[in-house]
Amino acid sequence: MVNQLLNIPNSARAKKIIIWRQVKDVLFIGIGVVMASIGLKGFLLPNGFFDGGAMGVSLLLEILTPIDLSFLIILVNLPFIYLGYKQLSFRFAVKSTLAIFALALLVHYIELPIITADKLLIAVFGGFFLGSGIGFAIRGGAVIDGTEVLAIQVSRRSSLTVGDFITVFNVFLFIVAAFLVGLETAMYSMLTYFSASRTVDFLINGVEEYIGVMIISDFADDIKSKVTYDLGRGVTAFKADGGFGEKAKNPDRNVLFTVVTRLEVTRVLTEIEKIDPKAFVIQYPIKDTKGGMIKKRPLH
């Protein structure tokens, strides 16, 4: 009875969910490892380009030393795996270790033809494949580039945010690279990093980036009904006290809040304008959501 009231799944259903999630994790990580190895062996390595983050450090060391890249990938990422174990979980560390070892094996053993000699295409598509690999691995709950794990650790101990640390880390890396391997190679590698980072963002956030929409209107009930029943989106109404000018004489009103995908925003705004062209509408991006009517994007 308690389980029914709390909506707790039975053991068979829970086991099925866990198994399916594990299968998806393995699939995502496998795709990520293959994509990253294509980016490395087919584009970046034959042309001496590199990326940002821990993978960038590995690639730069491969250019400057006789050590094979497969060993460098493991050695450079080992400290980050340990930090991941301390900060996140043992499971995360195990999955990341297996993913990094699988990538190192593919980089060591597979041979791919040089796909193009055009430096711009090498930078863009090398970054695309490498970023796809990193993004799919993250969707599977692992990392093949541990910079973000270090960034989390630093952000907890300083005023730097995760994004600030990654930016500073990569700026320093590309400055060092400009002195060691040449300015042109460093500049193309910066383009590789930009392509990879944009690809990672797209794979994690996708086209279904969430937008929070807050609506203040004298016709809140009509807008709420329209968004709920016609557009099929959940709406939360907050009791608010405020106003401006004549509206301050009757300040009690409902403020509406809904979350939609980026592709749905235009339609929502159009329907609001039909009902109340003077409605005050606020939009802001939402990184992730949980529960309710919104689909959860799996990360870890």
Rank of each mutant, 00 (worst) to 15 (best):
N10F: 00
N10R: 07
N10S: 02
S11C: 01
K15R: 15
W20V: 07
R21I: 05
D25S: 11
D25C: 11
D25W: 11
V33T: 02
V33Y: 04
V33R: 07
V33P: 04
I38K: 09
L40R: 10
K41M: 15
F43L: 12
S58P: 04
L61M: 12
L61D: 00
T65F: 09
F71V: 08
I73C: 01
I73N: 01
L75A: 14
V76G: 00
N77T: 07
Q87G: 00
L88F: 15
L88S: 06
S96H: 03
L98P: 03
A104K: 10
H108D: 14
I110R: 09
I114T: 03
I122Y: 13
A123N: 04
G126R: 07
I134W: 01
I134N: 10
T147H: 06
A151G: 03
Q153S: 12
Q153V: 01
S155F: 12
G163S: 13
V168S: 05
F169Q: 15
L173A: 04
F174L: 14
L180H: 04
L191D: 06
Y193T: 12
I204Y: 06
E208A: 08
Y210P: 03
G212S: 14
T228A: 07
D230W: 11
D241C: 12
G242Y: 13
G243N: 09
F244V: 11
G245R: 12
E246S: 05
F257K: 12
R262G: 01
L263I: 02
L263R: 13
K274Q: 09
F280Q: 12
K290L: 15
K296V: 13
